[in-house]
């Protein structure tokens, strides 16, 4: 499992889907038109989604030990 992980601030996500287009692992998707969510087991923490997000609501964080 990668050391890092993308985290979405749901309250600020505009659900545009820019992140889903660039994700190389299909690890991020838009949940019912409301916000983006990350499938943590697929995420490799590459940060591509963070780079494209127009709302700046994605941050790359260190994974917790137990995850």
């Amino acid at each position: 499992m990668a050391k890092k992980l993308a985290c979405v601030d749901k309250r600020r996500c505009v659900a545009c889907g820019a992140c889903t287009v660039v994700c190389p692992k299909n690890a991020i998707a838009i949940h019912k038109g409301c916000y983006a969510f990350v499938k943590s087991e697929n995420c490799i923490g590459c940060g591509k989604c963070e780079k494209v997000c127009p709302a700046g609501c994605i941050t790359i964080k260190e994974r917790e030990q137990d995850e």
Binding site: V14, A15, C16, K32, G33, C34, V52, C53, P54
Partner: peptide
């Protein structure tokens, strides 16, 4: 700013997201 900055405040996007919510 970012290429898709427009999407952050696109009226259609805001409207459809509100409907979805």
């Amino acid at each position: 700013f970012k290429p898709r900055t427009w999407c952050a405040f696109c009226p259609m996007g805001t409207m459809t997201q509100t409907i979805c919510k």
